[in-house]
Design a protein around this nucleic acid. Structure first.
Length: 324
DNA sequence: AACTTGCACAACCGCGCAAAT
DNA sequence: CATTTGCGCGGTTGTGCAAGT
């Protein structure tokens, strides 16, 4: 079946762009704007595939592109961001004005990675495999990064490092309850924090639930936490923990829907009965609270904490609940 | 001077996602 | 609902240049 690569089409040029081609592309985009890459080459009189044009524009001709050596600050920022985001070059590039994802990717592969390796740091750790729900949540986190929640991500990363230390120094304990603080800032900024058992395989589901829920009560001494999923302004779709049970969405599709809502409308969430079909019940012991701190292991804490922060931006009348 | 190596940069390529059909 | 299509992303490769041998 396979698609025919656009670069392979007959009669199209490949390789380095000439000044003349640049001129044509620039002139066309200045007049007609970006987009419609497929038909752009024909209209602009270029013997290139659209993909090649887009790349040339994005990485070279686009106004505002900073060229030349990366400063120490920029390099430091890349290392920092990469530790949190992994190889998400396009997201990283949004934090470095004037730098393209390609450029950042290049500098990482040709210089920074080797430098870190020499220092005994293994930058490949971010490529470890994580669960599908965790990947989904990471995706959400990534989407939210441009919205200014980088600090929270950093906080989470710090927490994860702490956790790793904890894991190394402790024996295998499936239901370990010892929490590890993510960061003081995080605790202060989040209206509620939640502790979870690191062992539960369904933790991702719990995280998803927490993303779409309001933690109403956090009492470290009680060793329990209450989670309300839903919307106080719309009582008919509110779900409460019943007894020792935390209710949460189970189906991935439902979760995806929730996450989409959060991504597209931060701080705004609509819940209806039909959207919460497939709710499962999980004993709350699996997610019991610890000593008032947060910890997490599966690479999704960033998403959770980011969403926690969103709560703080909700209107007063909604009592801190995500509503629509 | 000739060759090798490393680096920086640009571009190619395949794939996945989402909108359009 | 299934398929097609366009776009964007990330991995990889190619090329030119400078420094080292």
């Amino acid at each position: 079946m396979g698609r025919i690569g656009c670069y392979d089409a007959e009669g199209l040029r490949k390789g380095a762009w000439t000044a003349e081609e640049d001129k044509k592309l620039l002139a066309y985009i200045q007049e007609h704007g970006e987009g419609g890459w497929r038909f752009l080459p024909d209209k602009a009189g270029l013997k290139r595939c659209g993909k090649s044009c887009r790349l040339r524009w994005a990485n070279y001709l686009r106004p505002g592109i900073k060229r030349g050596k990366f400063s120490a600050e920029e390099e430091h920022k890349i290392i920092e961001l990469h530790a949190v985001l992994g190889n998400r070059w396009s997201i990283i590039s949004r934090h470095l004005p004037g730098r393209t994802d390609n450029e950042i990717k290049n500098i990482w592969n040709s210089r920074l990675k080797k430098r870190l390796a020499k220092m005994g740091i293994n930058p490949a750790s971010s490529s470890r495999s994580i669960s599908a729900p965790a990947q989904l949540l990471n995706k959400v986190a990534a989407k939210l990064v441009p919205l200014g929640f980088l600090d929270t991500l950093k906080s989470w990363q710090y927490g994860q490092e702490k956790l790793t230390e904890g894991e190394e120094s402790s024996t295998n304990n499936g239901n370990d309850n010892s929490g590890i603080a993510i960061d003081e800032r995080c605790r202060i900024e989040s209206p509620g924090t939640m502790n979870m058992s690191k062992s539960a395989s369904t933790q991702s589901h719990s995280k998803m639930a927490s993303m779409s829920s309001q933690i109403l009560l956090h009492d470290p001494s009680a060793n329990t936490c209450d989670i309300k999923v839903g919307n106080t302004c719309n009582p008919e779709c509110t779900m409460w923990p019943s007894g020792n049970t935390l209710e949460m969405p189970r189906a991935a599709s439902t979760s995806s829907w929730v996450l989409d809502e959060i991504v597209t409308k931060p701080g705004v969430f609509h819940c209806s009965e039909e959207n919460w079909q497939g709710v499962s019940s999980v004993p709350i012991e699996d997610y019991s609270c610890g000593d008032g701190s947060i910890y997490d292991i599966v690479g999704i804490g960033g998403a959770y904490d980011i969403v926690s922060n969103i709560y703080t931006e909700l209107p007063e009348e909604c009592n801190g609940t995500i509503i629509h």
